[in-house]
Amino acid sequence: MTTIGLIGSGNIGSTVARLAVDAGYDVVLSNSRGPETLADLVAQLGPHARAATAAEAAEAGDLVLVTVPLHAYRDVPVEPLVGKTVMDTNNYYPDRDGHVDALDRAETTTSSLLAEHLPQSHVVKVFNTIFFVALAQLGRASGADDRSTLPVFGDDAGAKAEVTAFLDAVGYDALDAGTLEESWRAENGRPVYVMPYASDGDVTTPAPGRADVVRDLLARADRDGDPQPAQPMPQG
């Protein structure tokens, strides 16, 4: 059975963990506060979940989700992730993370920073555009007319295929949106961020992002313009 390792178990991490368990995966969860603080979440998830340190979760995962605040990305363990596909959910929030000059100058992307930190891993940007409540609600069976599409970015075709298969298993279609260098198109404040997956901000009234809508919104992103702040934050 495939194991999903999670480095970070906040809103997005715990939601992905629930989706993964429901889809038949084992999950190994971690956070910055220690495995003992995850006891309640593990109990809710059942026998296919356990808590561990970040290094142990990285080691155990066949596929690993990194969902930590940007300012903590350098704390992600490197050696246990060598050769593995790493899903990155991060967004840049200067009020939370402090200013990063290279991001402010549009010289790199958040996922490129993680990829530089993990030079022997295959980083794929995913799950950063959708609010965690919507992520929990919008999963649909393969082929459903109202199935939502999430953009994925990465530099390795095999890694993107692995993430696409995982998305399919947990109820989502994937749109290959390009390389990590192009992932700025899906970052905080860009047109595809959050709102395509909600109706007037109300995720209890799903208006899921169709592939054609997601593709159009990605194409409309303007790197030279100032992105518009968007709330709510998909991760926390």
Rank of each mutant, 00 (worst) to 15 (best):
G158W: 07
A165L: 13
D155T: 02
D155M: 12
V133R: 14
F153V: 07
L150W: 10
R147C: 06
T149F: 01
S148R: 12
G154W: 00
A159I: 04
L150I: 14
Q137G: 14
D146A: 10
F153L: 01
A157C: 09
A134M: 04
R147N: 00
L135Q: 02
K160V: 06
G158I: 05
Q137E: 14
G143L: 04
L138N: 12
A141K: 11
A144E: 15
D146R: 05
V152C: 01
A159K: 00
F153N: 08
E162W: 02
D145S: 15
E162S: 15
L150N: 01
T149D: 04
G154K: 09
R147F: 05
A157M: 05
A159N: 03
A165T: 15
G154M: 08
T149H: 02
L135S: 06
Q137A: 15
K160F: 09
T149N: 00
A134N: 09
A141D: 15
A141E: 15
E162C: 08
L135P: 11
G143F: 11
R147I: 01
R140G: 11
V133A: 12
D146M: 05
A157Y: 10
A144Q: 08
D145V: 14
Q137P: 10
A144F: 08
R147A: 03
A161H: 11
E162P: 05
F166Q: 04
P151F: 13
L150G: 08
D146H: 04
G154H: 00
A134F: 00
L167C: 09
A165R: 15
D155L: 10
D155V: 06
T164D: 02
V163I: 08
A134C: 00
L135M: 07
K160I: 08
D145R: 15
D145W: 09
F166R: 11
A144H: 12
F153R: 10
S142H: 14
S148P: 09
A161L: 01
A141H: 07
E162F: 10
P151S: 03
L135D: 09
G158P: 03
A144I: 01
L167E: 00
S142R: 15
G139I: 08
P151C: 03
T149A: 01
A136K: 14
D146C: 04
D156P: 04
S148T: 06
P151M: 01
V152D: 03
A144D: 14
L167Q: 12
D156V: 12
T149E: 01
V163K: 11
K160R: 13
A165K: 14
S148K: 08
A165M: 12
G139F: 02
D155R: 02
G158V: 00
S148F: 06
R147K: 00
D146Y: 02
R147Q: 03
A141S: 11
Q137L: 15
P151A: 02
A134H: 12
A165I: 14
A136D: 13
D145I: 12
A165F: 12
D156C: 07
G158R: 07
